[in-house]
């Protein structure tokens, strides 16, 4: 009679949190390796070796070589590592702008809030890519242009999240009560608001990364971003367009795959972090 028919969980060797933390660690190591790879493997593979042109993937060149005989693995890793650094810079700037405006908007309210919300809405209503191109072009392209363009276009969603969180915490009974218990506004900001905003910020930052990287790649792909000499992932992909039809698939597909994996790794990292931080899902 008392059969455990209602049991929902199968027995598994690892519990859910171990799997979550494990996959996060794996993603982190993968991303760190890419980030540091340009120092680790040096620049030897970037030079043309005309005797080894257009080689398909093999043991010496796992990603093959291009029409100048450059090692594609070295180029891809250098490109990704550059992307990560640009991504970090752009995402951090975005996060700072987003958090600052979100906090100001949420705490001050009234007219300030209305203005900031209006700015956010304006940025949201403009097509992302067009704005990116215009800003990058206006500040003169290059690495600086990419960083500024990505930073200026990606803060809006984070600012919205932070503003909403600030508003909610600010109007909560426990913050109002804290005022009546004689706590100063600064103390309340430090002890009541910050613990709610920081997790949102962390998750937002990690989830901004893949966007920043993809848009950096997009900008360099259409030639506005970096100079054609730098091994950037967007430039590699743009070059490979010519070769895809001639059967040299590896020059495009493998660097593209690397980009995809890196972006996905950030995504997994961010989503898992969000799940762990939210008390509602952290027990599942």
């Amino acid at each position: 009679m008392a059969a455990p028919v209602l049991s929902r969980r199968k027995s598994i060797r690892f519990n859910r949190r171990q799997i979550t933390l494990g996959s996060m660690a794996l993603c982190l190591v993968f991303l760190l390796l890419i980030g540091l790879s340009s120092w680790l493997i040096g620049e030897a593979g970037l030079d043309p070796v005309l005797t080894q042109r257009n080689q398909p993937p093999n043991w010496a060149h796992p990603f093959g070589t291009d029409w100048l005989g450059r090692d594609m693995l070295t180029r891809s890793l250098h490109g990704m590592s550059l992307s990560l650094r640009i991504g970090l810079l752009a995402a951090s700037f975005s996060a700072i702008i987003g958090t600052g405006l979100g906090l100001i908007s949420g705490t001050l309210g009234g007219k300030v809030d209305a203005v900031i919300t209006w700015i956010i809405d304006v940025f949201f209503s403009l097509p992302h890519l067009v704005l990116l191109i215009m800003i990058a072009f206006a500040v003169g392209g290059g690495t600086k242009g990419v960083v500024i363009a990505v930073a200026l276009t990606h803060w809006t969603s984070l600012a919205r999240v932070i503003r909403a969180e600030t508003l909610q915490v600010n109007s909560s009974n426990y913050v109002q009560l804290s005022h009546r218990l004689g706590r100063s506004p600064v103390w309340i900001a430090r002890h009541h608001m910050l613990p709610h905003v920081v997790p949102q910020l962390l998750v937002g930052l990690v989830l901004l990364f893949p966007h920043a990287i993809l848009h950096e790649a997009a900008l360099s792909f259409i030639g506005i971003g970096l100079s054609p000499h730098t091994p950037a992932i967007g430039i590699i992909l743009a070059e490979s367009m010519r070769n895809l039809s001639t059967g040299y698939w590896w020059v495009g597909v493998l660097p593209g795959l690397l980009l995809l994996l890196a972006v996905k790794a950030f995504d997994i990292l961010g989503e898992n972090l969000r799940m762990l931080i939210d008390p509602k899902t952290s027990q599942e």
Partner: peptide, 14 residues
């Protein structure tokens, strides 16, 4: 000092 009906809302969940 005021004591609310729902204590869940009157304490910081974190």
């Amino acid at each position: 000092q005021l004591i609310f009906q729902n204590p869940e809302l009157a304490v910081n969940p974190r």
